[in-house]
Amino acid sequence: MAISLKVNGEDKRIDADPATPLLYVLRDDLALNGAKYGCGLGQCGSCMVVVNGEAVLSCMTPVMLMEGREITTVEGLGTIEEPGPLQQAFIEMQAAQCGYCIPGMMMSAHALLRRNANPSDEDIRQALGTNLCRCGTHMRIMAAIRRAGELMQAAGLPAAGEGRTG
């Protein structure tokens, strides 16, 4: 079935079984490999993307429900040459170890920072409660998210990503 999606601000048309999880469409059809397959059960958070501003687990989201919604993946937060504030902060704080969970972490953080550019540690812990990291870089991830909030405020962005997609 042909399905129209809006991903990172671009209109895409893909041909897929409507029940296909969004994750596979992103990775296999659109070559957006940021979102990762972790558990496939919506329990680890490595597949997290942002849909209409909210964090959504793409491994259990059938693509048929995404018609007309705005999807943002980690690739939509910036480029290698010009990283967005979240990406910049994760680099500065060296928040990735193996890095597998990081795109999911960043997308949960992105949804949080859109609502609240100055989150407390408690807010961050709550928003990222379902993102698992087995390397144990949690303290650096927390620091990176706080830093991203600062960068966004310094750049005068009202909330994350307003100038970008999603």
């Binding site: 409507p18 029940a19 994750l23 397959y37 496939g40 059938p62 048929m64 429900l65």
Partner: peptide, 20 residues
């Protein structure tokens, strides 16, 4: 999610959502 879902059991609008 790597197991392909069974086809929806009916044409009820909720059936496809349930299966997927």
């Amino acid at each position: 999610s790597q197991t392909p879902p069974a086809p929806a059991a009916s044409d009820h609008p909720g059936a496809a959502i349930y299966q997927a």
